[in-house]
């Protein structure tokens, strides 16, 4: 088995390395990927179409909105899958921790606990800043959502899981996760109902007062990113809460 595995890996690697010699040089501006019409269109029209300087955001939420919508639902599905696999109600039958990992005493409570307590609110504000300024600077729904989730993770590592579960209780995990996906799909559906294509945010100019088609696209992108952030943050915390307690949601690390 070991030999066979090594052999398979070496054959695969040799084939890939053989293919490498036909690649364009690293960073070539005239490589097929960079010369093509698609990146050119995305780069040149992001300001004209949506008034968003960050081409990555426009591509993520507008030009390739379908892709992102289903990626968001994949994250949601992963959360549901972990619930189905791991969650137990009532105690675990044979629960024991390896001794080497048991944390004794609480000598780190004051320093680590207080520091992270003071840091939670700025971290969450930073996450919302990243979410709201994804149009102008790096960032967006995925990054903002992960950082909000990480602030809850920090709270459960530095204090305890119960404290973050009182802020984001278990029955909210999947409500919020589904809400995010529904916000995304709902904005798409709204465009459909207003007579445009699915996820064609230009339609939103009929419901948002005083905006042109470009700003309607910009606001549509923001709405979609908010949906992504809600799903990602709640599912990240749901995954951690299940993993760190073996599905019991009681004590945590």
């Amino acid at each position: 088995m070991r030999f066979l595995g090594l052999f398979a890996v070496l054959v695969t690697g040799a084939l890939l390395l053989y293919g490498v010699k036909d690649f364009p040089h690293y960073g070539a501006a005239d490589s097929p990927a960079n010369e093509g019409v698609v990146p050119r269109y995305y780069m040149e029209n992001t300001m004209k179409d949506a008034r968003v300087p960050n081409a990555v955001t426009t591509t993520l939420a507008d030009y390739r909105g379908y892709d992102t919508m289903f990626e968001t639902s994949v994250v949601f599905t992963a959360g549901v899958a972990i619930f189905a696999i791991l969650r137990v109600f009532g105690g675990d039958r044979n629960r024991h921790h390896p001794d080497s990992l048991r944390i004794r005493g609480d000598q780190f409570r004051i320093i680590v606990g207080t520091t992270s307590r003071l840091l939670i609110a700025p971290i969450q504000l930073f996450a919302l800043y990243v979410l709201a300024h994804g149009h102008h600077s790096p960032g967006g729904g995925f990054q903002g959502g992960v950082i909000i989730g990480a602030s809850f993770l920090l709270l459960s590592v530095a204090r305890n899981l119960g404290e973050s579960l009182t802020r984001l209780p278990e029955h909210r995990f999947f409500t919020l996760g589904a809400t995010g996906v529904l916000i995304y799909a709902g904005i798409g559906l709204l465009c459909l109902l207003l007579g445009h294509h699915f996820l064609d945010y230009r339609a939103l100019q009929h419901v948002l007062p005083g905006v042109g088609p470009e700003m309607a696209r910009s606001h549509g992108i923001l709405g979609v990113e908010i949906g992504v952030a809600i799903t990602v943050s709640s599912i990240m915390f749901a995954i951690y809460a299940n993993l760190s307690t073996r599905g019991e949601l009681k004590k945590g690390l």
């Binding site: 990480a150 993770l153 993993l243 307690t245 690390l253």
Partner: peptide, 15 residues
């Protein structure tokens, strides 16, 4: 941040 923490949580819960 997150994926390393997921792994540590699993290591803590298993072996």
């Amino acid at each position: 941040g997150v994926s390393a923490l997921f792994m540590i949580a699993t290591v803590y819960q298993t072996t």
